[in-house]
């Protein structure tokens, strides 16, 4: 195999891993924001303990 293969493979793996980290961060954040919005829409708040 040529050295070009090893160079290209290194850059592709790095790009995929970093892209995976970014994608995971974005999806996870959106999921938590949506879950929080749904709870608040149902009227669940920190004050509900007192109520």
């Amino acid at each position: 195999m040529s050295h070009g293969f090893f160079i290209a493979f290194s850059y592709i793996v790095t790009a995929l891993v970093v892209a995976g980290l970014i994608l995971r961060a974005v999806i996870d954040h959106r999921m938590q924001v949506r879950a929080l919005a749904e709870l608040e829409a149902r009227g669940v708040g920190r004050r509900s303990r007192r109520g």
Binding site: L21, I22, A25, D28, H29, Q32, V33, A35, L36, L39, E40, R42, V44, G45, R46, S48, R49, G51
Partner: peptide, 26 residues
């Protein structure tokens, strides 16, 4: 940047967890 974003998400996850428990108690 990923660390800051991850910390923000984790804080939200904990709020969701607390509110879910409060809702279950109610």
């Amino acid at each position: 940047a990923l660390h800051l974003a991850g910390m923000r998400t984790e804080i939200l996850r904990r709020r969701v967890r607390t509110l879910t428990i409060l809702e279950a108690e109610r």
